[in-house]
Every structure is written in C-alpha cells, then in structure tokens.
Amino acid sequence: MKKDRGDFRLRKDISQKRYVISAIVTFVVIFAAWTLLCLSGSVKELFLPSPAKVVKDIVDSAMDGSLWVNMGYSIFRITMGFIISTLIGVPLGILAGSFRPLEAVIAPICEFIRYMPVPAFVPLVMVWCGIGEGAKITIVFLGCFFQMVLMIADDARSVSDDLLSSSYTLGTTRWTTITKVLIPAMAPKMMLTLRMMIGWGWTYLTVAELVASSSGLGYSILKAQRFLHTESIFSGILVIGILGLITDRLFAFAIKKMFPWAE
C-alpha cells in the first residue's frame, strides 16, 4: 500500500505562516482576476464595477459619514438580536441536551420552526413589532434562536456519560454536575456553535434591512439597487463581509484564549 506524501495528506497540519500567506494570495488572485475582467471590457461596468471604483465608493461613504451611521445601526441590531437569542437559547439547549423529558418538549418545536423561512416572517414581524428597531432585532433573533437551541443541545449531548457518572460517584448533585462538569466540558464546542450562529445572524440582519428599514448596510444596498449604483451594492456587500470576518476572528481569538487545551 502506498503512503500519502507531501502536504496533501489527510488532516496534515501546515505552519501558521503558510496558512496566512495562502489566504492572502487567494484574495489577491480573486481581486486581480476581477480587475483584469473589468479592464478587458468583456463585462459592462453597470454589471461589474472595478475594484478601484468599489473601494472609492467605500472611502467616499466613510468620508461623508453615511458608512459609519449605517454600520452603527447594523452592528447594534445584530448584537442585540444575537445576545437575546443566546441568553434564551443556550439555557434551553443545555436543558434539552441534558434531560430527555425536556428534550421531548423543546426539540420537536424547534425542529419544526427552524425549517420555516425567516424572510417569510418579515411581514408578520412588521405587523407585530412595527418597523422600528424591534422588528430588525426580532428577525435576527428568529434566524438564530431555533438553530442555536438544537446545536447547543447537541453540544451538551456530546459530553461523555462516563464523565457525568464519575461526578455523581464523587457525590455531586444534579445542579452541581450541570454547572461544574457539563457546562465546562461542553464550553469549547458551545463557543464554536455561537461563532457559527453569529455568521447566520449577519445573513438574517441583511434580510431584515432589505425589507423593512430606512437605515443600515442592507438598506444602503437596496437604495443603491434602485438607482443602479452597482458599485455601492458591491461596497455594501464587502463591508458586511469584512464585519462578518472581524466578528468571526474575534470569536476565534476568544476561543483560543479561553480554551487553549481545545486546540
């Protein structure tokens, strides 16, 4: 049997330096291809503006202040929606993953609702909450909450039964086992789940701002579409992507610092 050789062996690690360089080169290649495609004239600028024009639009909106205002609204909405869904969803997920009777109550309804398209709830949310900040926060909450409950429950179930049995053997109570054994054991996976959820939150926030808003990054994209300002559409998408990437990196940094043994 031949052995795998080189860097493409399954799950073989590479150096951090090489990883970063590879990521940077990938972005450079994509933007270079984008620039060459625009310079070739094979695609009209209305459909695909050049990277330089998109960057200029970002700089202009930053200079006139509109970028910071829209970013502020979007960051506030996703932060509030995510925090509320976490404060409610994490405890429910832990309970569903720890106690079968509670799982029978919590999991089926979450499984049912999570397949309902969140954008379809936008008209109802507007009726229930109006068109203020509560509506956008509610959309983010709906997009994250039900998925979060089920994934946190899976994280709780992933903790070894032997570990829990050992704690009972040492004389811990049910509550102490949950707080001192179960939650610390599942914490690294739980943080990874929250890291994934914040990414979905950005998606649902954009949906909310595209449909029912007069501010925010999603609204700026919709306004640009009305006037065929394609470069503003691209700049809005890029800014959302950058903010999402920053959020993801913050979670990754926090996980690394909080749970170094999980590496």
Results as ranks from 00 to 15, higher is better:
134 G>D: 04
233 I>R: 04
73 Y>N: 11
23 A>L: 12
176 T>S: 08
175 W>H: 00
153 A>W: 02
187 A>H: 02
109 I>W: 13
181 V>Q: 08
36 L>D: 06
36 L>R: 06
129 C>P: 01
40 S>K: 07
188 P>K: 07
128 W>T: 11
99 F>S: 01
7 D>Q: 13
183 I>A: 06
230 T>F: 09
46 L>F: 10
61 S>A: 08
133 E>T: 12
58 I>K: 02
238 L>F: 15
219 Y>E: 05
23 A>I: 08
240 I>H: 02
22 S>Y: 14
98 S>Y: 11
246 I>M: 13
101 P>K: 05
234 F>S: 00
16 Q>C: 03
261 W>D: 13
28 V>I: 15
242 I>V: 15
28 V>R: 06
234 F>E: 00
191 M>V: 10
189 K>F: 11
164 L>E: 07
75 I>V: 15
48 L>N: 01
119 P>A: 07
128 W>L: 12
5 R>A: 11
4 D>G: 06
92 L>C: 07
254 A>E: 09
11 R>F: 13
228 L>Q: 12
230 T>M: 14
140 V>K: 00
33 A>M: 14
191 M>F: 14
190 M>I: 05
206 T>D: 00
175 W>S: 05
107 A>M: 13
203 T>G: 07
39 L>H: 07
147 Q>I: 08
171 G>V: 12
57 D>C: 09
247 T>W: 03
5 R>H: 10
156 A>Y: 02
242 I>L: 15
254 A>R: 06
237 I>M: 14
191 M>T: 03
150 L>P: 05
81 G>C: 07
5 R>Q: 13
137 I>G: 02
16 Q>M: 11
12 K>E: 14
134 G>R: 04
191 M>K: 01
93 G>I: 13
246 I>N: 06
48 L>K: 02
139 I>Y: 02
56 K>W: 11
231 E>A: 12
81 G>M: 05
24 I>D: 02
140 V>D: 01
231 E>S: 12
255 I>P: 00
125 V>A: 12
113 I>N: 01
204 Y>P: 01
38 C>H: 08
225 Q>L: 12
47 F>C: 06
139 I>K: 00
80 M>C: 11
65 G>Y: 09
68 W>A: 09
